[in-house]
Structures are given as C-alpha cells and as structure tokens.
Simulated scan of single mutants.
Amino acid sequence: MSALGELRTLKGGSAPKGRRQNKAAYLFLLPWFLGLAVITIGPMISSLYLSFTKYNLLSPPKFTGLTNIERMIEDERLHHSLLVTFQYVFISVPLQLALALLLAVVLDRGLRGLAIYRSVFYLPSLLGASVAIAVLWRQLFGYDGLVNQVLAWFGIEGQGWISSPDTALGTLMILNVWTFGSPMVIFLAGLRQIPTMYYEAASVDGASRWQQFWRITMPMLTPIIFFNLILQIIGAFQSFTQAFVVSGGTGGPVDSTLFYTLYLYQRGFTSLDMGYASAMAWLLLVIIGAFTALNFWASKYWVFYDDQD
C-alpha cells in the first residue's frame, strides 16, 4: 500500500474515534450547560423582563416601560446607597490589597512553618462573608465589646462603633480588609514566579531592597495586582451579608451602612417591589461592567507583561 493510502486509512480510522471522544466530552459538559441555561441565563432574561414591569409577587407582572428607570433617577435613598457602596469599595479594596501584598512579601522571605502561616492568613477569606463572623464583628465593636475593653486599658473611653453613623461603615471596611487571605495567596504565588537573577543583578549594581521592590517586584507583579483588583472590586460591590447582619437588615444607623445590595434586598423582599429590584440589579451589573471595562482600558498604561518589548 502506498504512503498516501496508509495516510487515508489512518485518517479514516481515527475520525470515528475523535467523534466518539467529542460526544463523550459534550456528555460530561451537558450538566454544566443545563445549569448555565436554567440557573443563570434563564433568570437573567426573566430579571431583564421584570425590570420593565410592576411586579409584587402576588399578582402577574404588568409592563410599565421605563417607569422603574425614572424612579431610580428620582430615588434619593438609592443615590445614598450608591455613595455608601462607592466609599466602601474605593477605600477598603486598596487597603486590603496593600495589606495582602505586604504580608505576601514578608512570607516570601522564607519563614519557618510557611504553610501554617499561609493557612492561618487565608482563613479570614473563607469566613469573612459568613453570618457568624458578621455577628462576631458586631459584638467586637459594640459598646461593651472587646475593642472598647482594650481601649479602656489605655484610659480611652470607647463608644458604640456600630451604633454611630460616623464609624459604622468604617467597621465594615475593616472587616473587608481583614479578609486579605485570598489576594495574599495569589500575590505570594506571583512573587515565587519572579526570577531571582533580577534581584541578584540589582544587588551587584548596588540597589537597595527598597529600590529592588519598586523597580523589580512591583512591575513584575502588575498583572497579579490587576487580577486581584478586578476580583476584589467585583466582590466588594456585591457585599451584602456584613451590612445586613451588623445593621439588623436596616442599613443603619441613619443609612450609614446601606449598601446597594442591601437596599435592593429591601425593595425586593421587604417592599415586594420586584420589578424595581430587578431594575436595580441590572444597574448594578452595568456599574460593575463599567468599572471592569475601565480597569481593562487603564491596564495598558500600568500593567506590564514579560512578552512586552
């Protein structure tokens, strides 16, 4: 048999096997596709329709056009919830990433028992969004909580940090900063990928550790910083449990902890205004998408990759 004939035989024999493998792959992926259609895409389409209706769960939805959008423009409490959420995101996320990077640099120096430290520091990321930690946080910053007890040792009179509108949001920011474990682990993995020859060459040239950090570590870590920034911004915009538990679901005191998601919950499940709540949900999607797109656009000015000239 000629070489061309053998090649055709091999191709003909492998084609059915390849098709069988594709069918098997699609079969294994079928549950995921069903979940995507039923749990994600279906509710999203329904929510988009409900955002143009008046719907209270007790009667069929009534199409109202752009009425919900007009209501959002005039809703001062919605505007306040956006302001509270923006403050929470723009203050707590940079502080969280700065702390995560600092601890990652310290752990990267090779401490004994590194795996233990890494696990302990990562634990808050797993527990930070839980109801139990939110309840604990409420107790810590209460008038008779541990924070005021520590301050009393130094002769400082404490206050009800949760019950004061000037400090209530700050306690939630501290809680978000405390959940630095996830970005810290990612930063630590990125630090381990930086070639040591860069630091050796810089040491030979007389560069200090501080100069090495700003001239080598930070530029090489910019893709990791960008990745963590995107994830943490999206997560901070979606924060709900902490504010709900700490404020008792009210967003108080004086709406100082009224996150956008908490106000959305109040309109949808307390006031049964599901049409308006659906419109609010889509506004949140647009806001998160806009900030994500803005970060991707700005990344070309400060994120550097190894394959760039």
Rank of each mutant, 00 (worst) to 15 (best):
207 A>F: 07
191 L>T: 00
170 G>W: 10
184 M>G: 14
248 G>M: 06
213 F>K: 05
264 L>I: 01
242 Q>R: 08
264 L>H: 11
161 W>G: 12
187 F>N: 01
172 L>R: 07
238 Q>H: 09
191 L>Q: 03
239 S>L: 13
157 E>P: 00
228 N>Q: 07
211 Q>W: 15
237 F>N: 04
196 T>Y: 01
158 G>N: 11
187 F>G: 02
224 I>N: 03
206 G>F: 07
152 A>C: 04
151 L>H: 08
260 Y>E: 06
193 Q>I: 08
265 Y>A: 05
197 M>H: 10
157 E>Q: 11
263 Y>D: 00
236 A>L: 15
200 E>N: 13
234 I>G: 00
205 D>L: 12
158 G>R: 02
161 W>Q: 10
171 T>P: 04
207 A>R: 05
249 G>L: 08
249 G>A: 13
163 S>P: 06
192 R>F: 07
193 Q>G: 03
162 I>F: 01
196 T>P: 00
156 I>F: 14
171 T>E: 02
254 V>M: 13
173 M>W: 08
209 R>F: 07
236 A>N: 09
255 D>A: 04
154 F>R: 08
212 Q>I: 06
199 Y>Q: 05
156 I>D: 06
205 D>C: 10
192 R>E: 04
201 A>N: 07
229 L>R: 03
263 Y>A: 01
159 Q>K: 08
222 T>H: 13
231 L>H: 12
228 N>K: 01
222 T>E: 09
189 A>V: 03
255 D>N: 13
229 L>H: 02
155 G>R: 07
